[in-house]
Design a protein around this nucleic acid. Structure first.
Length: 429
RNA sequence: UCCACCAUAGCUCAAUCGGUAGAGCAUCCGGCUGUUAACCGGAGGGUUGUAGGUUCGAGUCCUACUGGUGGAGCCA
């Protein structure tokens, strides 16, 4: 039996295979706190109702002993989990020789990250990782319900991307250097000409020396790309995606959100349509709120918070100046100083979770822009090719999975939103 | 790359003006038949990150280094 199904087994004699994460005692009775990977339960060992050998075994168990216990399941309000097992039998798999490093009291973040392989067993981490699983599951579901096709983009790539300084490089046989992908976008742009609407979901890598609560060097990104979508179609898809994922997490994983103390009321408001403001309006709003910012400046972390706190759901800021955005973004025909793009900012101070744009589909304009950015035209040969054979207007975006999870769980730092975080000064465990 | 802060027991932290190295938790021993980060009594546990300097005297002040944390820029 797994503990997630405990309510179906009240009154039955069952076996739990798991670990003891804490033990309390009161002389002739032991309260064993057990987990099995799917849930938690309290199990009691009464001296008067078990063999002497079983009672001695209970006494010898240390934190994180692995055990198979047998007994009767009861409902009991005195248990922290509502259910309790009366243990009849304990089979020890292993009693650790050493003290378990993670104690019931607080730890510093350095210590916890060094022991991440053990920290994962803690309750809070258990719940966060279950929410992450649900976020990814709902994301995939959403695309398949919209008839998108999954296209897995490569992780090893040649030198192509936005700028090579932010890439991790590896030696690649006789071909020199390969780079770890920081986006699959260009490949998805190729795929839409074959499949129409496509998405990916996988790891991406940035060698930026970013040290903030919103950055990892390896993070999971979902990207989508759609033929014949303009920037407006693109924004509609994004708000449908994010509201769908939040709704599904609330439906299927709210017990986990509650267990980590997340107030779910703000999440219940995440419904379409999301508010939209143009970059121009955003600058005016920020100036009114006394931010030191002028037209043409990029919108930084504090500014993002300043905008998003005006709204009760994610807000989309659209049409940024072309000078601060990537070369492949389509200029606005009504205002050539801006490009057709948008960021989605999560509420509650979580900042950017999506970066999106309509892509340039005209080959000459694309080449002009590549040159304007001082990028090597040769290495974009196949990307330019896409515009030479039946080019169409198209749009797409990238969504950071960890940022989404961090917001939904209201985490202090993105590193808890991924099982094994890769940050600038940490590559183990 | 830049700025700020931190480093004392296994863990989390104290140590007043520069003047005897301390507590809680964990561990071990003892007590308790309903504990809820259980509780109560007792015990063991220290080259104060490393190297130098100032001083009668440095955990405390100064310099460098190492490791870490938070932030900026950049981004998802």
């Amino acid at each position: 039996m797994y503990l997630e199904d405990v309510s179906d087994h009240v009154g039955e004699n069952v076996e739990i295979r798991g670990w003891m994460f804490n033990k309390r005692s009161s002389g002739k009775i032991y309260f064993l706190q057990l987990r099995d990977g799917t849930g938690f339960i309290q199990a009691i060992v009464e001296k008067s109702s078990v063999d002497e050998e079983v009672f001695k075994t209970a006494n010898s168990l240390r934190i994180e002993s692995s055990v198979v216990v047998g007994g009767m399941i009861r409902e009991d309000k005195r248990s922290p989990y509502g259910y309790e097992m009366n243990i009849k039998d304990i089979k020890v798999i292993q009693i650790p020789d050493e003290d378990y490093p993670i104690s019931k009291k607080e730890h510093g973040i350095d210590f916890l990250m060094t022991h991440r392989h053990l920290w994962l067993r803690s309750k809070r981490q258990f719940h966060v990782l279950r929410v992450r699983d649900e976020v990814i599951k709902a994301t995939r579901e959403f695309y398949h319900s919209k008839k998108f096709v999954l296209v897995d983009t490569p992780i090893l790539t040649g030198a192509i991307g936005e700028s090579a300084g932010e890439l991790f490089s590896v030696k690649y046989f006789d071909l020199g250097k390969a780079y770890l992908a920081q986006t699959g976008q260009l490949y998805l742009e190729a795929a839409i000409m074959a499949l129409g609407k496509v998405f990916n979901l996988g790891p991406t890598f940035r060698a930026e020396k970013s040290k903030t609560r919103r950055h990892l060097t390896e993070f999971w990104m979902n990207e989508a790309e759609m033929a014949y979508y303009n920037s407006n179609d693109n924004m509609i898809l994004q708000e449908e995606l994010v509201s769908y994922v939040v709704k599904k997490v609330l439906e299927r994983a709210s017990e986990h959100l509650m267990a980590i103390g997340r107030d779910i009321k703000p999440l219940e408001k995440v419904q379409t349509p999301f508010p939209r403001i143009s970059y121009d309006e955003a600058i005016k709003l920020l100036q009114k709120k006394d931010f030191d910012i002028k037209w043409g400046d990029d919108i930084g972390g504090d500014e993002e918070t300043g905008i998003s706190e005006e709204f009760d759901r994610p807000v989309m800021v659209y049409n940024y100046p072309r000078s601060i955005k990537a070369f492949y973004m389509q200029p606005d025909p009504d205002n050539p100083k801006v490009v057709l793009c948008n960021d989605m900012l999560a509420p509650e101070g979580y900042g950017e979770i999506i970066g999106a744009s309509q892509r340039i589909h005209d080959p000459d304009l694309l080449i002009e822009r590549i040159k304007e950015f001082n990028l090597p035209v040769e290495s974009y040969d196949w990307y330019i090719d896409l515009r030479k054979y039946g080019t169409v207007p198209h749009s797409g975006f990238g969504m950071g999975i960890e940022r989404l999870v961090a917001w939904i769980c209201k985490l202090d730092h993105i590193r808890e939103a991924i099982p094994f975080a890769r940050t600038i000064y940490r590559i183990r465990p």
